[in-house]
Write a protein that binds this DNA or RNA. Structure first.
Ligand SMILES: [Mn+2]
Ligand SMILES: [Mn+2]
Ligand SMILES: [Zn+2]
Ligand SMILES: [Zn+2]
Lengths: 154, 154
DNA sequence: TGCATTATTGATAATAATTATCATTTTTAT
DNA sequence: ATAAAAATGATAATTATTATCAATAATGCA
């Protein structure tokens, strides 16, 4: 079986870690499902279908590891589950923000940013960094409200 | 004992709910500690000091209720605990965003927004609302990174 | 290719946060 | 004061996540 993105393999080897079957499978799940926001359970079930030997603990460990490495990012949308998606450090992953429906939990990604928006954000990050001596690595932006569906059935 | 903000009492009565001791105590904790981000446990311990009869379940129920009413807001900063703060629907609560240290968990509130920033945000919300038919109620904005303290000890 | 070393795994138990249950107590309107 | 209903607190039950540890698989080298 192909053992996933060579860049990731290299980074792992450099830190004395190994590219294992379980890790490759989980990475593939993320790579093959752009735009999804997976919980540990969801990853477990999908991985389990591919290799029924895989255990729950490994899923949690791998998610932690990949998050540490900056390959995936932890997200919480208020439904009590931690969710994960690939970061834009990975190729083909566009920068995006989220719309979260507080009624049904639906999450919409959007990627349309005006130049004005991008510039302003860069400026704000720079100012905050300096003012608070804070090394900003990324931002999480969610607009919370009521989605199309939930709005209608009122 | 004073039974808290009349506006909140009124809203509760209107929906057939009652302004109870426990609720008043918890509301007071929030009102008296602007800028804190309390977990259920923290609220429980403080409330317990004021009235040792108060129970854990009531704390959870009250936090849920107040969040439903839009008086407090749920926040998750990635430390596994759900936290709460008063919303700007309450008087004396300024609109603000968060800086979150991914190393030690420290959270900084900041309230300095330029007019440019505010205008742009209003515009973006409006455009998103229309494009995705999404009633936006509020937004959660966090800049994640490494705080002053954690940065130095590297 | 076979082997030794050691990171990783899977099964399982342990934690810890949150939710559900239900008899008892408060609140509120009369 | 009283009756009806909402709310509470003690406690058990769930549920997500972590820790443990013997067994397994990945890696570098002979
Ligand atoms: Mn997303
Ligand atoms: Mn805050
Ligand atoms: Zn919805
Ligand atoms: Zn820090």
């Amino acid at each position: 079986m192909r053992r996933g993105n060579p860049w990731i393999c290299k980074r792992m080897r450099e830190e004395g870690m190994r590219m294992t079957q379980a890790r490759a499978i989980i990475l593939n799940i993320f790579a093959g499902n752009q735009g999804e926001h997976f919980s540990a359970q969801e990853i477990f079930f999908i991985a389990h279908r591919i290799n029924p030997g895989i255990g729950f603990a490994t899923v949690y460990r791998t998610l932690d590891l990949l998050a540490q490495m900056g390959i995936i990012q932890k997200l919480e949308f208020g439904d009590g589950l931690t969710r994960y998606e690939m970061t834009e450090a990975m190729e083909n992953v566009p920068h995006h923000h989220h719309l979260v429906c507080t009624e049904c939990g639906k999450v919409i990604d959007y990627t349309e940013f005006t130049d004005e928006e991008k510039e302003l954000f860069a400026k704000v990050e720079k100012e905050l960094s300096e003012k608070y001596k804070f090394k900003i690595k990324n931002h999480i932006i969610q607009f919370c409200g009521i989605c199309n569906n939930c709005g209608e059935r009122r």
